[in-house]
């Protein structure tokens, strides 16, 4: 029969295929690159609180625009800033001993431009909007400016030279740092409000941030207090029966906002006694002065476990 021949052919074919499979079908193990290590710093609770702390006096309404670069920001809508500077230079160069009085008059003279120019170099963009009041000169800012200006000196001088006939009369004391500061004002002409300075002032922190966490020490203190107040017979059999969970709600004044609720359940008489003791302990323990204001969100609602093993561990 022909099938015999073809059967042989078929077998040969399969042998070939399987042989090829044996050779080529070797499992390659997948390469698993080790995950990149992530550096972890361990910081103390104290450090954490310092990091996340905001300043209470910060303004909430006007969020500061984040500024990363000083130079690149695009100019403000109105060109006010640019115009002012030239005139100011003149005035600046003749500063009276007390810097503040000098600057005020000077700046008011050039009416068209608001004193924006002066404010820009300062750290915060905000003040610009407040223009009307005299700009405060703050020594640190001045110092900073002076540092900046040293680099930039060549330009501003070139600009400054031509326009300045108006007020040569005033005495000119040569005070390098002040000149630098004044020069600084005009050279940032281009800087837009948003881009004028790094926004380095402290923020309020995010509204939803939970960075302030209930610290272990607070918890421990509270636990210690409750343990001292929880009057339950230790050392009885089956202490696990005495496990009581009490839910409390606290006011910011650290007192209970509502009567404590026993969440756990148990039937034995000893459990009932323990639960009542726990409730009493919670009531007696207030106010819980060990809790911090910052973490109110954390301890507003609490489930307190009264566990004989935990409480009397020591």
């Amino acid at each position: 029969m022909k099938v015999d021949k073809t059967l042989v052919a078929s077998v040969a074919l399969h042998v070939l295929v399987i042989g090829w499979g044996l050779i080529s079908f070797s499992a390659r193990s997948l390469e698993a690159p080790p995950p990149e290590s992530m550096p972890v710093d361990i910081i103390s609770a104290d450090q954490l609180s310092k990091i996340t702390a905001g300043i209470k006096t910060g303004e909430k309404d006007k969020p500061k625009p984040p500024v990363e670069k000083i130079a690149d920001a695009r100019p403000v809508d109105d060109a006010v800033g640019k115009i002012t500077e030239k005139k100011e230079i003149v005035t600046a160069s003749a500063p009276e001993p007390p810097p503040k009085p000098v600057e005020k008059p000077v700046e008011k003279k050039p009416d068209p431009p608001k004193p924006v120019a002066e404010d820009k170099p300062k750290d915060e963009p905000k003040p610009i909007e407040k223009k009307p009041d005299p700009p405060k000169v703050d020594p640190i800012a001045e110092a900073l400016k002076s540092e900046d200006t040293k680099k930039l000196v060549p330009k501003p001088e070139a600009k400054a030279a031509p326009p300045q006939p108006p007020k040569p009369k005033q005495e000119r004391t040569f005070d390098q740092s002040k000149i630098a500061a004044l020069l600084d004002k005009r050279d940032p002409t281009r800087q837009s409000i948003t881009g004028s300075a790094l926004n380095s002032s402290a923020s309020l922190g995010t509204t939803r941030g939970a960075a302030a966490t209930l610290s272990q020490s607070e918890l421990d203190a509270m636990r210690a207090r409750l343990a001292s107040l929880w009057n339950v017979q230790p050392g009885v059999e089956h202490p696990e029966e005495l496990y009581v969970t009490v839910r409390i709600r606290l006011n910011p004044d650290r007192r209970l906002a509502a009567p404590p609720q026993v969440v756990s359940s148990g039937s034995s008489a000893r459990y009932q006694a323990a639960a009542e003791a726990a409730v009493r302990a919670v009531l007696q323990g207030q106010p819980y002065t060990m809790l911090r204001d910052e973490t109110y969100e954390q301890w507003k609602y609490m489930d307190i476990d009264f566990d004989p093993k935990q409480m009397f561990r020591s």
Binding site: K2, V3, T6, L7, A9, S10, V11, L13, H14
Partner: peptide, 18 residues
């Protein structure tokens, strides 16, 4: 299944020639 495969190919080769 291996036997089936061999048989199938045998038949197929046979039929192709036929």
């Amino acid at each position: 299944l291996l036997a089936c495969s061999i048989w199938v190919w045998a038949i197929a080769i046979d039929k192709m020639f036929l």
